[in-house]
Design a protein around this nucleic acid. Structure first.
Lengths: 151, 151
DNA sequence: AATAGGACCTAAAGCCACTATAGGTTCAAT
DNA sequence: ATTGAACCTATAGTGGCTTTAGGTCCTATT
């Protein structure tokens, strides 16, 4: 049988579309296994790790938290188990994304209103500064919804 | 003339709707001035600081970064100056919010598709795990747009 | 074989905007 | 005088990386 092809951390990172440090970080937090090393103590990876890293990056692109990714990876590692939990994780994430969109939309509306009313004069009569000074000038008292809005 | 009414950090925080530590943090990073102290070294605030803190909290609720708030505060402190820069900051922020909404909407669509296709069987045939494993299964190759999407 | 420079190594700090913890002091009410 | 809440400072933790510092190793060219 022939030798497995292996590649460096730089090659792995560029194939997965992330940074070298990010790979080391994932190893550190246990998302990626500790890889083999060559004689000079440098990491050598196989295509299995590339697939795993791609899964991680893709899940992160979807906005799943690292902890969610950890769970999803655990499930991907056990193809015979039922997938209800993966389903639940995805559904919850979808709900969070939808909630975030709603909050951001309310925020956008307030910002639009604010910007539209600025006539471009002095700060004293600027609607932007005025609205920021006085919460009561917002359409919905808590319409833009606190710091949560920007998460 | 009569003495100015002053109040404690706890009263200030609760009137502004934030935490006590947050007030101290804003002082530390220079958004709030160092206040007077009483005989026991405790901070005493005036309504001027309450107004300033309210402005800060409200701006943060609007999603402005602390650095943007710092600039906005500087402008609020100079009512005679032109307000173009405040206007520019708000417009830029509005654009960022709109961009974020777009990215989140694409993300939501992909998530919906993914969740809808999960039939609830074993992990092996789960669409969620499958889509996460393989970027090509997304509608738009870069539709949900990388980590930027979730900011 | 020597050398240059890019890629790799570890460990630790930095980012944002707070939040939490630890261990002590002061205030206000009883 | 005592109690317990609120205050004080300093430091660490959060998430998910990114950056920096100070080195070692690999590979291509001379």
């Amino acid at each position: 049988m022939q030798e497995q092809e292996t590649f460096s951390i730089g090659a792995l990172a560029s194939r997965a579309g992330c940074q070298v440090q990010t790979v080391r970080y994932y190893e550190q937090i246990g998302l990626l296994p500790e890889p083999a090393r060559n004689a000079g103590n440098q990491r050598r990876y196989s295509t299995a790790t590339l697939r795993r890293l791609t899964f991680i990056r893709h899940s992160r692109d979807f906005g799943f938290s690292v902890e969610a990714v950890r769970e999803l990876l655990g499930m991907a590692d056990h193809p015979d188990m039922p997938c209800d939990h993966a389903d639940a994780i995805a559904k919850r994430h979808l709900e969070e994304v939808e909630a975030r969109i709603e909050r951001l939309s309310a925020l956008r509306d307030e910002l639009k209103r604010m910007v539209a009313q600025c006539a471009g004069g002095r700060v004293e009569e600027c609607r932007i500064v005025e609205v920021l000074s006085d919460h009561d000038q917002c359409l919905h008292a808590s319409g833009h919804g606190g710091r949560e809005a920007i998460r």
